[in-house]
Write a protein that binds this DNA or RNA. Structure first.
Lengths: 235, 235
DNA sequence: CACCGTGTGTGTACACCGTAAACCGCAGGG
DNA sequence: CCCTGCGGTTTACGGTGTACACACACGGTG
């Protein structure tokens, strides 16, 4: 009986299970609650046992990021323009970063994010972009720009209102004693800016705005490229 | 003599000096080398002495960010279009993040970055944007989008090649065992993508590309707004 | 059956971290 | 004069990642 309880208590304790447990912990209590001892406790096991399946805490974090990244669907269903693809990419990344804010903290450190994207998805996207008339350099830049925009926007959103298990510093505004004459000048836009606040919803809207603008700019560039190509062809 | 040496050895040990020492340490050895004990050692003082001038390590990091942020010049010299302003903003932020990569790690955490910008600069920028015909919402989004883009781009660049004092994980590519058939398909863009690498210079170019596109998109939006306004006025 | 290597979990130990509390010397003001 | 308070030190506690030695259960081989 007792040994039976022992047996069914612990799962095989694989690296994947450890990463999953780390993800759960980070989701519920924040990234700094993800310590070897905490994970081990949650798994009903000693801390050092984890090292049989995971090399470092660093690699564990990477595994958590990879595990989470696998649930993204970077591309929209099959027949899609490159605009739809990029929009869907942004949306998917945003959703992931909102659902797992600690991902930002992992990504932001000196670690490799790009490996998270599956190569086949990347290939489809790049081909679509090139078909639109973009040079290889421009394809490269586009594929970098969208994740950069999402990372930056969600990072700002997360900084403005941190998630669970995050202790904000004692007095944040004390950092820069900005002269509080906002009320003195009611026509000031800064006042409206400050009063508005940055919520996740508003950030999502800002992200859409930026992606829209970026796509519009890319379209212009693509059209120009195509026109130049046609001129050279006819000339 | 000895007491003289003692006297001129230690500066008055103000909060600013501590923050400056922290900045120097972070620049040279990376952010994780910025510990109370290390700073204290560098200042020739005991660790707890710092707490007379700094509340937390958290607040120390914030002070470091503020100290560093003060050296930015967010706005170009006086007569400038809003495009030049936004471009200069992006460029200045980029330079700062490249010079002090640890800033990203501080900003990325649950802390408030926006307070770093001086309100007057913000006001100038917002007025210029509104004069261009953008709605207040759009001004808001523009001012968020540029820093977001810079943060995201530099974060990707930093992730690709970390600075000094950063130990990359033992085997980064092991995270996602991406099928290495790159060589098998020479026409694959993914191969070119991967072979290209992400340097700080290339990221700077990507950033310029994205800012260009964004500005172009914003210009289109602004023109449309102005046109609508004129129609309503004449109609 | 005995035996033994190997692979997995445990316990102990070390260095480091942030920081709370007590202490101590010394300058300035009553 | 004393004494109060500020700046610095020392010690200590709980937390972290992780190196190392050990224990136990297992499967293959004699």
């Amino acid at each position: 009986m007792t040994m039976n309880a022992d047996v069914h208590r612990r799962s095989p304790l694989s690296a994947a299970a450890i990463a999953a447990c780390g993800v759960a912990l980070a989701d519920s209590k924040g990234l700094e609650a993800v310590s070897m001892r905490h994970i081990a406790d949650a798994l009903g096991v000693s801390a050092m046992a984890l090292y049989r399946h995971v090399e470092n805490r660093e690699n564990l974090l990477l595994a958590m990021a990879a595990e989470t990244g696998r649930e993204f669907v970077l591309l929209p269903p099959a027949p899609a323009t490159w605009q739809e693809m990029l929009r869907h990419l942004a949306s998917s990344l945003w959703d992931g970063f909102v659902k797992h804010p600690w991902l930002l903290q992992i990504v932001l450190g000196p670690r490799r994010l790009l490996d998270m994207a599956s190569t086949s998805d990347l290939e489809v996207l790049l081909q679509a972009l090139r078909a639109a008339g973009l040079t290889d350099d421009e394809c490269f830049d586009c594929v970098l720009a969208i994740p950069a925009l999402v990372i930056g926007t969600s990072s700002l959103a997360f900084a403005a209102n941190p998630g669970p298990g995050v202790h904000s510093p004692t007095r944040a505004n004390a950092v820069v004693p900005l002269n509080a004459d906002d009320a003195a000048r009611p026509e000031s836009l800064t006042a409206a800016f400050r009063g508005r606040g940055i919520t996740y919803d508003s950030s999502r809207k800002s992200l859409d705005f930026a992606v829209d603008g970026l796509l519009r700019g890319i379209e212009a560039r693509s059209l120009k490229n195509v026109r130049m190509h046609q001129e050279k062809q006819s000339g």
